Amino acid sequence: MDAVPAEPTAPLRFAVAYFGAVFVAGFVLGVVRTLWLAPAVGPLAAVALELPLMLGFSAFIAGRLLRRWPLSRGTAALAGALALLLLLAAEAGVSLLAGRDLAAHWALYRAAEAQLGLAGQLVFGLLPALRANQKAP
């Protein structure tokens, strides 16, 4: 049977905590990828090497947060979608802080490495629903 949130704000709290933890980890790994890994192996290979780490971390965090805020699969899917929107908005915000306008930010997605990263972000959004009702490590 699906778990029910203990409080009405649980999906929102889950989404914000999930987004925050993964965004911080992604920011740190993104700096490593950009400054050291990409120059050595190329941008696409660098993203391909970073992606399993990020998705593994995302799955771990989703599981841990689901222990704190047990959500049904449907509610977890909603929380994951909200976390994805927060992640995409934060990424656009970082792009704006870097001096790009929104058109230039969206143009980045023409590159294969950005498309691979976006695919990973979509999986990030799905992970809470996939992890719902599973035992967390």
Rank of each mutant, 00 (worst) to 15 (best):
Met1His: 15
Met1Arg: 14
Ala3Thr: 13
Ala3Gly: 05
Ala3Tyr: 07
Val4Pro: 02
Val4Thr: 15
Glu7Thr: 15
Thr9His: 12
Leu12Glu: 02
Arg13Phe: 11
Phe14Ile: 10
Ala15Met: 12
Gly20Asn: 11
Val22Lys: 00
Val24Cys: 05
Gly26Ser: 04
Phe27Ala: 09
Phe27Cys: 04
Phe27Ile: 05
Val28Gln: 02
Leu29Asp: 03
Val31Phe: 11
Trp36Leu: 15
Pro39Phe: 12
Val41Thr: 08
Pro43Glu: 11
Pro43Asp: 10
Ala46Ile: 01
Ala48Tyr: 00
Ala48Ile: 02
Leu51Gly: 07
Gly56Ser: 06
Phe57Cys: 01
Ser58Arg: 06
Ala59His: 05
Phe60Ser: 04
Ile61Asn: 02
Ala62Glu: 06
Gly63Asp: 12
Gly63Gln: 09
Leu65Glu: 04
Leu65Cys: 08
Leu66Ile: 13
Leu66Met: 10
Leu66His: 12
Leu71Arg: 09
Ser72Leu: 09
Ala77Val: 02
Ala77Met: 02
Leu78Glu: 07
Leu78Pro: 00
Ala79Pro: 14
Ala83Gln: 04
Leu86Arg: 12
Leu86Pro: 08
Ser95Ala: 15
Gly99Tyr: 04
Arg100Asp: 13
Arg100Gln: 14
Asp101Pro: 01
Asp101Leu: 00
Trp106Gly: 03
Leu108Asp: 13
Tyr109Ala: 05
Tyr109Lys: 03
Arg110Ser: 06
Ala111Glu: 15
Ala111Lys: 13
Ala112Gly: 10
Ala112Thr: 12
Ala119Lys: 10
Gln121Phe: 01
Gly125Val: 05
Leu126Ser: 08
Arg131Asn: 04
